[in-house]
């Protein structure tokens, strides 16, 4: 039996229900608008702030071939494991059409043959090409540096997918039914890694992929605030050389790599 934490969150609402239930057992009188007292200081009531910039540091030396714990964790976190292949579709076609927010890539250096493993997801560019090209402004960057899609105004033109240098975005090719409450997703819109945005909004310390990597004993993914000089990610970036993928494009990515 799965137990979900939803019963314990959403406190403001529940408080009000208690109050309302206590106040009246009858229909609320029309025109009476009840107001919740209190300025809510819970993290989920605070707007995303530009005082932080979320990012990831991936140490490819610690990432191993064949491990896909980060990918599985992402799938579970965001309900991507609930996608199903349309029954009549060929598996090979589905592999190219299903949504993938993070993927494992295995590289061999053309000269030295050195093999590198790494997870690749949206790089949360400071100057995101996907945001520049989006005709409606659906693709946007939050104050805290997270690049995501406002699915309410995404028209599904896929121009952002053409523009992303990392092929980090997915288009939802089929009707959806079993979405998670915290990750609404539906046919005809584009999506990508959002650095576990619901965790960010609830003030949690890490992402699903980073947690899973740590749990697997690898510790190849560090999540944190790039603007905080004392954060583990900033300290690690300072201590060791790292790079951005396709730094020639000068996008100033929020995801950095060691050892590629």
């Amino acid at each position: 039996m799965m137990k979900h934490p939803d019963e314990t969150i959403d406190q403001g609402r529940r408080d009000w229900f208690g109050l309302a239930a206590a106040a009246t057992a009858a229909v609320a009188a029309p025109g009476v608008i009840l107001h919740l007292a209190s300025a809510n200081t819970a993290p989920e009531a605070q707007p995303a702030s530009s005082a932080v910039r979320w990012g990831l540091l991936i140490d490819t030396n610690k990432c191993t071939s064949g491990c896909r714990d980060c990918v599985d964790a992402c799938d579970r976190e965001n309900g991507l494991d609930l996608q199903t292949k349309p029954p009549t579709e060929a598996p090979t076609a589905w592999a190219d059409q299903k949504a993938v927010w993070v993927r494992k890539v295995k590289l061999a250096d053309g000269l030295t043959g050195r093999v590198t493993n790494l997870p690749l997801m949206c790089q949360h560019c400071e100057h995101p090409p996907c945001v520049d090209v989006c005709p409606t402004g659906a693709s946007f960057k939050r104050a805290d540096g997270i690049v995501m899609v406002d699915r309410h105004i995404c028209i599904g033109c896929r121009y952002c997918m053409m523009a992303c240098p990392y092929q980090a975005r997915s288009f939802i090719h089929q009707p959806m039914h079993d979405q998670l409450t915290r990750v609404p997703r539906g046919k005809g819109c584009v999506e990508s890694c959002n650095l576990c945005v619901s965790r960010r909004d609830h003030g949690l310390p890490s992402t699903a992929c980073a947690d899973a990597c740590t749990a697997a004993g690898k510790g190849a993914i560090v999540f944190g605030d790039l603007k905080d000089p004392a954060s583990p990610i900033s300290l690690a970036l300072k201590a060791m050389p790292s790079r951005q993928l396709r730094e020639d494009l000068a996008l100033n990515t929020g995801v950095r790599y060691k050892g590629v």
Partner: peptide, 11 residues
């Protein structure tokens, strides 16, 4: 309601 505001892993 499915999955709650946070994932099982997160909580």
């Amino acid at each position: 309601p499915r999955g709650g505001p946070l994932s099982a892993a997160a909580s």
